[in-house]
Design a protein around this nucleic acid. Structure first.
Length: 209
DNA sequence: AACTCGGGGCA
DNA sequence: TGCCCAGAGTT
């Protein structure tokens, strides 16, 4: 079967496993989602959810966040990995939003990626989850799954993103990003790959291709 | 391309 | 304990 048919079958299985995938603060405003996504780098949902209530109570908007001392932000997110780097980025980013964008989060890749602490992956999450624009955030989980499923031979996430965009319809990118991450965390783990219990591995094996 | 930040998860 | 991670920036 060709890759698009394989991809469609995989998407169906993912929908069954994770019908309504969530990320921290997915349904919030763009600023909150941006900060939560930035905090999520190399960290777990639980760790992020632990610090965001106090952080956003103290500074719910770029204007409020821009007024905080870096030391206070660092203290508010102290329990998260990379807290020093992230605190610096959050304060500077907020001040940039106030000075250059009237306190609004921009909705283009170029503008988002010009902000400190915001790379292509974080920008992609904001683009598709906050602004509902076409983007497929590809991280190391998704990179690994795409290769295991034979949907990409990309040697980095950049190449994998191109390959995945070619086989999945644009309307599904945002949801697939979340579903694939949860799937990678549950079944196709980086280490200790649970191939016997993995519904997609089972499907691909049973299929003659 | 390699290194660094950093607490947490997992073997 | 040691290695890796829902990345990004610097050298």
């Amino acid at each position: 079967m060709d890759k698009k048919r394989k991809a469609a079958a995989i998407a169906k299985i993912l929908n069954r496993c994770f019908p309504d995938p969530e990320i921290p603060l997915k349904h919030s405003d763009p600023f909150t989602l941006l900060i939560a996504t930035l905090l999520s780098a190399q960290a777990t949902d639980a760790a992020v959810n632990k610090v965001t209530p106090r952080l956003f109570q103290r500074a719910p908007t770029p204007f409020k966040m821009a007024e905080l001392e870096e030391a206070e932000v660092r203290e508010l997110i102290r329990t998260i990995g990379l807290f020093n780097t992230k605190a610096k980025a959050i304060v500077k980013l907020s001040r940039m939003l106030v000075d250059g964008w009237g306190g609004e989060v921009p909705s283009t890749f170029e503008e988002l990626e010009s902000l400190p602490g915001v790379g292509h992956k974080t920008a992609s999450v904001v683009m598709c989850q906050a602004f509902h624009k076409p983007a497929f955030p590809v991280d190391t989980h998704i990179h690994r799954l795409a290769k295991r499923w034979g949907l990409s031979r990309g040697k980095d996430v950049k190449e994998t993103e191109v390959d995945l965009k070619a086989v999945f319809p644009k309307s599904k990118w945002a949801k697939l990003h979340l579903q694939m991450i949860y799937f990678g965390r549950t079944f196709c783990k980086a280490r200790n790959h649970l191939a016997e219990e993995c519904p997609i591995c089972t499907f691909l094996k049973s299929d003659s291709n």
